[in-house]
Computed example of a mutant assay.
Amino acid sequence: MPLRLEPTFRDALAAADRPLIGMWLSTGTALNAEICAGSGIDWLLIDMEHGPNTVVSVQQQLQVIAAYRVPTIVRVPVNDAVIIKQVLDTGAQNLLVPMVGSATEAQAAVAAVRYPPEGVRGVGSGLARSGRWGRVAGYVPNASETISLLVQIESADAVDAAADIAAVDGVDGVLVGPADLAASMGLPGQQSHPDVLAAV
């Protein structure tokens, strides 16, 4: 079985000759995920931070989306190596880690998606969908080739550290979260405030 199982978001961005249009999946249902995957959309995002998604529902959605080969990002609820490991084991290849406020936190996210010695991801691919239960030859030593990591900047302090966060080796993209950013600036619910727009 080939190592690269699905296109990564990093690959999709590199190949794009136009802006890519995506959709967020927040219902936790495989049926909705399949409907969206067949819509012609460029990418999907399964939201575990603010949606009722679990590790099980993420895996089910990834299974139905796989038939459509749509790059699918999973936003984990927190920058936690255990949760990240579980989500990667479901077969997720593209992660968005929220609330990354410093280069150190970005480095922790990178470490969580990589196996030792480059990172701290626990090796369980023989028991998991990520390595197709041991059927993907060379999965463990080459898994980082199949993973795109995006981090989310969502506070005024993170904006100040944005260049350092983006420069971390292994971070493939940065997304600004304007709602939490506005709240951190004392402007909750005011994402279009000029100060928030300037920060974005």
Rank of each mutant, 00 (worst) to 15 (best):
S102Q: 07
S125V: 03
I153S: 01
G189C: 08
V78T: 09
I153F: 00
D164Q: 13
A66Y: 15
S144T: 10
G134W: 14
G177C: 05
P77K: 13
G134Y: 15
S184Q: 10
I83K: 00
V64G: 03
D157S: 14
A167D: 12
G138Y: 04
G173C: 11
D180Q: 10
G91E: 01
G173H: 04
L95W: 02
I73A: 02
A158T: 14
E105S: 10
G124D: 08
A182I: 04
A182G: 08
S148G: 05
R132C: 08
T90W: 04
A158Q: 13
G170K: 01
T104C: 15
L127A: 12
M99P: 09
D157W: 12
P116E: 02
G189E: 07
G186D: 06
A67P: 01
D160P: 12
S102D: 09
Q107G: 08
N142H: 11
P98D: 02
I165Q: 06
V78I: 12
V78N: 06
A66D: 15
V97G: 01
V151E: 10
W133T: 08
L149C: 09
V70A: 11
P178N: 14
P77R: 13
A128Q: 04
Q191D: 08
V78G: 06
M99S: 11
V97P: 00
I165E: 01
L95I: 04
L88Q: 02
A156F: 09
G122V: 08
A106S: 04
Q190L: 15
P116W: 05
P71Q: 09
N79I: 07
D89K: 08
V82A: 15
V120C: 04
I165P: 01
L88F: 02
E145A: 10
S155Q: 05
V120I: 10
L96I: 09
L181D: 07
P117S: 07
Q107E: 04
V64T: 10
P71F: 12
V151A: 15
S144Y: 14
A81M: 09
Q190H: 12
A137L: 12
R135T: 13
L149Y: 05
V64D: 05
P188K: 11
A183G: 05
A112I: 11
D169I: 14
G122R: 07
I84M: 11
A66M: 14
A158S: 14
V110S: 03
V159L: 11
N94S: 03
N79Y: 06
L181S: 10
S125A: 00
R75D: 01
L96K: 02
